[in-house]
Design a binder for these strands. Structure first.
Length: 307
DNA sequence: CCAGACGTTGTT
DNA sequence: GTCTGG
DNA sequence: CCAGACGTTGTT
DNA sequence: GTCTGG
């Protein structure tokens, strides 16, 4: 199953159509290309979390958002299948529904995927028996607001370093002394942790992540298809990256403290030390924009839906 | 001083 | 190539 | 009536 | 598929 929904009425894949996401507003409002899909082709995309890049001048600092308790994250999606002209095989595709970011995360980005965090939400989303949209579904796609299942976010070691560089720290510190402390304190810890990680990768076994297998049986009737590895990297790439992820710094404690700081940094377009040190990207590719990236790093994206 | 790490992603 | 931890 | 659009994110 | 502009 491929990311980027190709509607069932398509003759050819229209690549000018950007369908990696479906805005909840447009689902609720009714018209448009989702109208024929939202009632009967809803699915759930299972992942450990998703990345969002905080824009700081030219830089993009990756933040990984996940459930605080480490459960797999269930993103509301739509899917479709079509046999395009000249093809004999069915093309399965999906999209991820987005909504406004909730308050706790709006400093990071103005949009968030729709996260289904309760069994009821999951069931309601996957129940397409009526073949229609409903007010229940409209509520489901509201900005995330489940106090019982809080989200947290992680910052990569690299991002930590960048955010706590002396220059940056001083600057931010003068503007907001209250908020610099947590990040400044963090530096040593991060370095140490990073070093430790380097060692442990070689010798440690895979971290204990929630069992996908279990979830599959319980939460879904059917597995649609998994993404092919050539689209999302080879399995061999994944383990080290997940290990790395686990050693990232959990920022849940300073979630609130950091919010104002992050906003400042985000709007600090003075650049500071903006030397494009390792810019591999050609201007052209860069222009192609980086849309919301959802868990590409963690490997497979699997969509579930009811038969 | 030297060994070893260094990196967000991007695509069809 | 350059930085850094040992 | 039919042809054509239907989209999102992030901005160069 | 469904809606809209011409």
């Amino acid at each position: 199953m491929k990311w980027g929904l190709v509607p069932h009425w398509s003759k050819e894949e229209d690549k000018t159509l950007k369908t990696i996401n479906a805005r909840s507003e447009n689902l609720v409002e009714g018209g448009g290309m989702w109208a024929s899909i939202k009632g009967r082709k809803r699915c759930v995309v299972v992942c450990e979390g998703y990345y969002e890049w905080l824009k700081k001048g030219k830089e993009r600092l990756p933040h990984f958002t996940k459930h605080k308790d480490g459960r797999l994250m269930l993103l509301a999606g739509l899917y479709d299948s079509v046999i395009l002209e000249g093809h004999s095989d069915t093309l399965w595709t999906f999209t991820i529904v987005t909504t406004s970011a909730n308050k706790a995360f709006s400093w990071l980005h103005d949009r968030q995927p729709v996260i289904l965090s309760t069994h009821e939400a999951l069931t309601a989303w996957l129940d397409t028996s009526s073949h229609t949209w409903s007010t229940t579904l409209t509520k489901l796609v509201d900005p995330y607001d489940n106090e019982k299942s809080p989200l947290t976010w992680y910052l990569s070691p690299t991002s930590c370093k960048k955010l706590s560089s002396p220059k940056r720290s001083r600057k931010v510190g003068t503007e907001s002394p209250t908020f610099i402390q947590p990040i400044a304190d963090r530096k040593d810890g991060i370095q140490a942790m990073f070093a430790k990680q380097t060692k442990s990768i070689a010798s440690t076994s895979a971290p204990s992540t929630p069992s996908k297998g279990k979830k599959r049986e319980r939460d879904s009737e059917v597995e649609a298809k998994t993404t092919s590895s050539d689209e999302f990297g080879s399995p061999a790439d994944k383990k080290p990256k997940i290990e790395k992820l686990d050693t990232w710094e959990d920022h849940s404690e300073i979630e609130y403290l950091d919010t104002p700081l992050q906003s400042q940094i985000a709007s600090n377009h003075d650049g500071g030390s903006d030397k494009p040190s390792n810019r591999k990207m050609s201007p052209q590719k860069q222009r192609k924009k980086a849309p919301k990236q959802v868990t590409k790093q963690t490997g497979k994206i699997t969509a579930f839906f009811k038969k």
